[in-house]
Nucleic acid binder design. Structure first.
Length: 559
RNA sequence: GCCCUCGUAGCUUAAUGGAUAAAGCAGCGGGCUUCUAUCCCGCUGAUGAGGGUUCGAUUCCUUCCGAGGGCACCA
């Protein structure tokens, strides 16, 4: 496996400067070279020299060391950058590697590290929301990219199918059936009505002695009230299985897959992991009893004490989740969680929590993402699962299509809230960036087909004559440079989990290709040039396919 | 009140402390006898406000203003 161009440049700088990990970036304008490094600033600070002098010195040394092999020019530029221009030979060699590697270009070597990515994990108390979709697309793409980078990745969905919210779900349905009075905290919306219809017919759920008169006797008969609690739970569990089925169906529509489904009820609670976690904390002397509840004595997040076991004897979400995370770290070296921004308050406590068990908090990466707002007629459409006014992910995908939804959601960095204008997404679909990239792909395919017709025979007889060195126009060069960034991009995403980098890369690759398409031709050129260009176009097609595969976006054959 | 995230061009967004802040959309002006003009080229235009640290700040610190979210024996 050959090293990426950026890695090679870093190595060269490192050799002559002694800086271990010199920063190297892509040049943004022609004047900045193909690659550039600000490493001279770092050295000048340490050695109290002028940055430009240091840069000049380094540029000269690098030029001498390299002997024109990798670079055609290495120059210092004020205020102290070193700019690198790749030689034609280096570009040609890289393109040859690229063509030869095909889909393995940029693929990382097998790593020992096992990574768990836990995402979506929406409670089975309603359909998947747009926010779930954002986390879902992000998790799925990140899993693909990390796998491509060489890691052993497990995609996990943690199903909170126990605890209070399932009971609330059950109660919501009972209220809908008119058995108990409705409450503010209950789930509402069309899907609750649907569930009530189905659940009402499940006679076995109502086997307990509760009869029609129940509603009148609540609160007067303790035994009856207790049975009602059981009934809420039973109904809730039943509804949760139905909703989980629906969620799985939405995931199929969204083309998101999981390797492992962990059930809070079966895999965590029933296995005694919660009890054990509590006992272990008690053994460490970290638990204190107060007001009939058990509290974590150690200060978490610097301010608030956390309840572990409530005075009614049930466990808190925090304790259960801690038990779950502890289990994950038994198997995985690294755990990545994708959480909606509304859970940010749990980040510190969870990191502190795993530390209590001697787990390095660095092994737990929590990616927060801001919510998705739906805009219609310039106004926000309020979304709340409880109130039942929300656009489910399924509806959105149906309205604007999977690829557009996915591309749009992944294009933004997670820290930014997405305002999704439904009208714009539908009306101006041709302006959508995903079409821009798909169009570039369609054009590559078209060229490949047309040129096969025109040159197929000659190519079969003269394949060894394809001379990539003939590709030396500005557009050829720009396109090869774009393609060559891909391995570095993968390693950047592996480091910071910024999937949106790949989308932006796709857009600039598509741009470079459209430009190339406008200025250069394949069919109609002389045989040797046509075939060299055809190889380049083929490489672009493979690069787009690869990125689309990683993102789970369809490859369209026609526009 | 406390905590978190965010504030960049008319709009939507980029920029591990580095160069003249980068794109798309919208607007204006050009470009198809030729591999799909759903494309290409050019122009216009921005860091919420004030301090501070730094050779250098969109980035770090601080005050203020604004948006969203979180602050339960909910999950």
């Amino acid at each position: 496996m050959s090293q990426s161009i950026r890695t090679r440049i870093q190595k060269i700088i490192s050799d002559v400067s002694g800086i271990e990990y010199p920063k190297v970036v892509f040049g943004e304008t022609d004047a900045q070279g193909d690659y550039a490094s600000p490493v001279a600033f770092e050295i000048s600070k340490r050695e109290h020299k002028a940055p430009l002098d240091v840069a000049n010195d380094l540029a000269e040394k690098i030029g001498k060391t390299d002997q024109g092999k990798l670079f055609s020019r290495v120059e210092a530029a004020p205020p102290g950058f070193i700019n690198f221009w790749l030689s034609e030979e280096a570009l040609k060699t890289e393109l040859a590697t690229l063509v030869k590697s095909g889909k393995t270009y940029g693929k990382g070597e097998k790593q020992k590290e096992k990574i768990q990515i836990e995402f979506i994990s929406a409670n089975p108390t309603g359909p998947l929301t747009m926010a779930n979709g954002r986390g879902g697309f992000l998790g799925a793409a990140l899993a693909n990219i990390l796998t491509f980078a060489g890691y052993k990745v497990t995609r996990e969905y943690y199903v909170n199918d126990a605890g209070n919210q399932v009971k609330v779900l059950g109660a919501s349905i009972l209220a809908e059936l008119g058995i108990i009075p409705a409450e503010e905290r209950f789930y509402k919306g069309a899907y609750i009505k649907d569930l009530a219809k189905v659940t009402g017919k499940q006679k076995k759920l109502f086997k307990t002695s509760i009869k029609g008169e129940l509603a009148n006797r609540i609160g007067t008969d303790a035994a009856m009230a207790e049975q009602l609690e059981v009934l809420k739970m039973d109904v809730g569990r039943y509804a949760a299985t139905l909703l989980l089925k629906e969620i799985k169906n939405s995931l199929r529509n969204a083309d998101i897959t999981f390797d492992v489904w962990t059930s809070e009820e079966k895999d965590i609670r029933k296995k005694g992991l919660v009890k054990k976690t509590l006992a272990d904390l008690q053994a460490k002397g970290l638990v204190v009893e107060r007001d009939g509840a058990l509290w974590l004595e150690k200060e978490i997040a610097g301010e608030k004490e956390r309840v572990l076991k409530k005075s009614d004897g049930t466990y808190t979400y925090y304790l259960v989740d801690l038990a779950y995370h502890r289990k994950s770290f038994e198997t995985y070296d690294k755990v990545i969680n994708l959480w909606g921004a509304d859970h940010h308050g749990n980040v510190q406590p969870m990191k502190e929590g795993v530390k209590l068990f001697g787990i390095d908090a660095e092994r737990l990466a929590i990616i927060m993402f801001q919510p998705v707002r739906l805009i219609e007629d310039g106004k926000e459409v309020k979304m709340s699962k409880r109130a039942g006014e929300f656009i489910a992910l399924d509806e959105l995908m149906k309205e604007v299509g999977l690829d557009v939804t996915k591309f749009f959601f992944l294009m933004f960095t997670p820290g930014n809230r997405i305002d999704f204008d439904l009208k714009l997404a539908k009306d101006d679909s041709s302006k959508n960036p995903v079409f821009y990239v798909q169009y570039a792909y369609v054009r590559t395919k078209s060229i490949l087909a047309k040129s096969k017709e025109a040159y197929g025979k000659w190519l079969r007889a003269n394949s060894q004559k394809v001379n990539l060195g003939l590709l030396n126009t500005k557009e050829d060069r720009k396109l090869i440079l774009e393609l060559a960034k891909f391995p570095d991009l993968i390693s950047d995403i592996t480091a910071d989990y910024e999937v949106s980098r790949l989308l932006r890369h796709l857009l600039s690759l598509a741009r470079a290709f459209h430009d190339f398409y406008e200025k250069e031709r394949v069919v109609g050129e002389k045989n040797d040039i046509a075939l060299a260009r055809r190889a380049l176009v083929g490489a672009v097609a493979v690069a787009i396919e690869q990125a689309f595969d990683l993102l789970g976006i369809q490859k369209r054959k026609k526009m």
